[in-house]
Amino acid sequence: MSDNDWTPDQPLVSIRDVHKSFGNLEVLKGVTLDVMKGEVICIIGPSGSGKSTLIRCVNALNTIDSGSIKVEGQEVHDPNLDKLDLRKKVGMVFQQYNLFPHKTALENIMMAPLKVLKQPQAEVEERAHKLIKRVNLGGKENAYPGELSGGQQQRVAIARSLAMNPDVMLFDEVTAALDPETVNEVLLAIKDLAQDGMTCILVTHEMGFAREVADHIYFTDRGVIVEHGPPATFFTEAKDPRTKEFLSQIL
């Protein structure tokens, strides 16, 4: 895509020693992690530990102060960053869904491919219909966000991101604002995606889900990665006292 020497066997997202402050508050104090193609990683940790900020930096919604974030070899921490090129590769789903309330579910999905990528209407429409069925919302094509439940809106939001054909998806606490009974339908949609081989970075509080779908779990606290490992060992053999305390509270 861009003129760099990235090859698919290198990390798809590579985060190196990232620092980020809001005013006097340093929220990221040297975070380093890699995500390989097809890998699903979960970032967990207490509120205010900087995990949302970290993934918002990956698609340049926030800028970083120092360090490096590379997506398929493209440096995000670059004043001349081609944001459109980056955002074609990186999809993002938000805690508050953030659908466009004046557009139907289908229009929400089609908007960016039509207006940003300028793809032909017929092709985009066909893809949007497939996507809406994929997130199990067949029949809701013409519903407005206000007519959908939180879980349904969030699934439309996932389909909307997928319509851009991203290589990596970011999920920022996507179930935190949902009714408990609709959390599952969203998690299922994400799981389905993960099983299809989509590279995913999730910030989540759903430990059961993390254990089930993640290839690797990172625990962050006060701006640093305290501990990480595959789910099989992470939940049972945590060494750091902070991790233990967090897990004991949440499990």
């Binding site: 508050q96 966000p145 939180g150 809106q153 606490e173 604002a177 949902l178 009714d179 408990p180």
Partner: peptide
């Protein structure tokens, strides 16, 4: 990083 209020699907679309 705020953890969202649960049981709140009626998010304000407009301030």
């Amino acid at each position: 990083m705020k953890s969202g209020t649960r049981n709140n699907t009626d998010l304000a679309v407009l301030k």
